[in-house]
Every structure is written in structure tokens, then in C-alpha cells.
């Protein structure tokens, strides 16, 4: 088995990664040019109070790629995702150990302003969470606080573009002033995607964005992801293996390990590689069992 030389460094944890700086050219004679590294984590541990939710994760997320996080429920995918835009700061017990850099800048440096991070690293949450306001206001809120547009036609354009991208425009264009709470669950989730796109982020973190969507809307969201990855970098958590295989360039498989000393489970990164490799020729038996459905 020959792992993709570009990602091989990610799963090799004994040796420190040699070329931390984002490089245009490949390293170690890689056959295809390495894309710039957007996120790089080194030995990341995440705790909720004394409970260690995720242990020792080292991985790199590359620019203009879709990276999928897969794994059984409770293995820490959401927890990991929320580290990338410092959303875990909002949970008082949450604590991050190790390093996480964004384009080489330590995200957890005391000088970093989490508000600025979240402006650039947008998030679509696992449960749809529209504001209890109108559809229009939901999409316009981000651009308003980011001062991308004051209102008027400039804002109207942002709202329309975002809703179109999220495949929701046709369903809501006649009731933009209606409350978002009146939308169906799937429509609410697409509204949240539109709200995220409206601020024109650099990275989009999507936590199971399609779990409440029908196959048509799911297809549209997948098309959208494929389209916008030219401009953005996307990390998507999904329980849908086909989706991971279809849309992502790289896949990270997490699982939860029972701890020896206490009756808790801690998430670990089992394997991280090119999606093709992960699904056709994984290096770890656990990955193979999971992607082929032999793992609960």
C-alpha cells in the first residue's frame, strides 16, 4: 500500500513534521504540487473540564480542498471542528492543548481576536439555528456586523446571492420578510448555509450540513461545495460515507477509544489520507471496517 505522499506526513506522528511553512512546491518529491496548508494541528488535545474529549490530533487542512471528518457518534468531530474557529471558547469548561495554526499563525495565541477568526472561518452548525428573525435579517446579519454592506441594494444583492448559492432562493424569494422559524428543518439548514456564505469567509466548517436534507437539496449543497472550493476551504463532518467519498479530497477518520483509568471515551484520529485511499485502500483496519459499514 502506498499512501498518498502528500498526506503521509499527517499520520506519521512519531517524527515532527519537517516543513511546517506553507509551500507552493511539493515536498519529498511529491508527484502533485502541495496546496497551501490552511490549518495545521500538532498534538491537539481538547478537554471539557477534566474530561479529555479528543487526544493527540495532528493533521493539516489544505487550501481549496474539501476535507471530510468521519467517525462514529461522540468521537469528537464537532469538538475538533469547533477548535478551528475558536467556538469552543464559548464553552467555559472547554480547554485546548497543543498547537493549531491558521496559515502559520497560532490561532490560540493570546493576541488573536476570536471575533476576527470567526469572521474568516464560518460555521454551519449540526442543528439548524436560525435567528428568530426574518429570513432576510438572518442572511443580512453577518454582512451587517462585518460592515460589508450598510443595507439597500448592496445588501439585497448579498442576500440574494447567498440564498441562491444555498439553493434556497426560489423557495423563499417571495417571503424574505417572513420569520425564519416558519421554515422547514431542511430549509432552515440551507438558510444557515446562506448566512455563513454571506460574510464571504475564507474557510467554511460544516457540521453535518445535509443530515436534515432530502437527496435533491443534498445534491445541490454538494454541487455548491464543489463549486465554491475554488474560493474557499471546506471542512465537512458527515455520517454519510457516500457523501464523504463523493465530495471530499481528503478524509480524516476519528474514533473513540475507551480510556483505561476511567469509564470515559476519548476521540482519536485513526487515519488521515486522500479520500480515494481512505475508501479503497485504507492503512488501518478500523478505517476499513468503518467505511465498509462493519463498524457500529
Amino acid at each position: 500500500m502506498a499512501p498518498d505522499p502528500d498526506t503521509a506526513v499527517e499520520t506519521r506522528r512519531t517524527e515532527p513534521a519537517v516543513d511546517l511553512a506553507p509551500q507552493a512546491g511539493g515536498h519529498r518529491g511529491a508527484p502533485r504540487p502541495s496546496k497551501a496548508v490552511v490549518f495545521e494541528t500538532e498534538a491537539l488535545n481538547v478537554y471539557y473540564g477534566a474530561f479529555k474529549a479528543v487526544r493527540d490530533v495532528s493533521l493539516r487542512v489544505h487550501e481549496h480542498e474539501i476535507t471530510a471528518f468521519i467517525g462514529p457518534s461522540g468521537c469528537g468531530k464537532t469538538t475538533m471542528l469547533r477548535c478551528f474557529n475558536r467556538m469552543n471558547d464559548l464553552i467555559e469548561t472547554a480547554r485546548v492543548e497543543g498547537t493549531l495554526s491558521y496559515h502559520g499563525v497560532d490561532l490560540y495565541d493570546p493576541g488573536v481576536n476570536p471575533v476576527e477568526v470567526r469572521r474568516r472561518v464560518g460555521m454551519v452548525f449540526q442543528k439548524p439555528n436560525p435567528f428568530p428573525k426574518s429570513i432576510y435579517e438572518n442572511v443580512a446579519y453577518g454582512p451587517k456586523v462585518a460592515r460589508l454592506a450598510k443595507g439597500g441594494t448592496a445588501m439585497d444583492e448579498i442576500v440574494e446571492r447567498s440564498l441562491r448559492q444555498a439553493a434556497l432562493w426560489d423557495e423563499v424569494k417571495d417571503r424574505l420578510k417572513a420569520s425564519a422559524m416558519g421554515l422547514s428543518g431542511g430549509q432552515q439548514q440551507r438558510l444557515c448555509i446562506a448566512r455563513c456564505l454571506a460574510v464571504d469567509p475564507e474557510v467554511i466548517l460544516m457540521d453535518e450540513p445535509c443530515s436534515a436534507l432530502d437527496p435533491i437539496a443534498t445534491g445541490r449543497i454538494e454541487d455548491l461545495m464543489d463549486e465554491i472550493k475554488q474560493q474557499y476551504t471546506i471542512i465537512i463532518v458527515t455520517h454519510n460515507m457516500q457523501q464523504a467519498a463523493r465530495v471530499s479530497d481528503r478524509t480524516a477518520f476519528f474514533t473513540a477509544e475507551v480510556n483505561e483509568t476511567s469509564d470515559t471515551r476519548t476521540g482519536i484520529l485513526v487515519e488521515y489520507d486522500a479520500t480515494e485511499t481512505m475508501f479503497s485502500n485504507p492503512g488501518d483496519e478500523r478505517t476499513e471496517n468503518y467505511v465498509t459499514g462493519r463498524f457500529g
Partner: peptide
């Protein structure tokens, strides 16, 4: 107030006060 609303606000880059 549900935390999910706060998270939605912070998620698009709003400050605590906003």
C-alpha cells in the same frame, strides 16, 4: 435564551456586545 442563538451570532463574527 438558547445557546444556539448566541452561537449563531458568534459564528458569523459578531462581538459579545453585538
Amino acid at each position: 435564551v438558547p445557546d444556539s442563538i448566541r452561537e449563531a451570532g458568534f459564528g458569523v463574527g459578531a462581538t459579545r456586545w453585538e
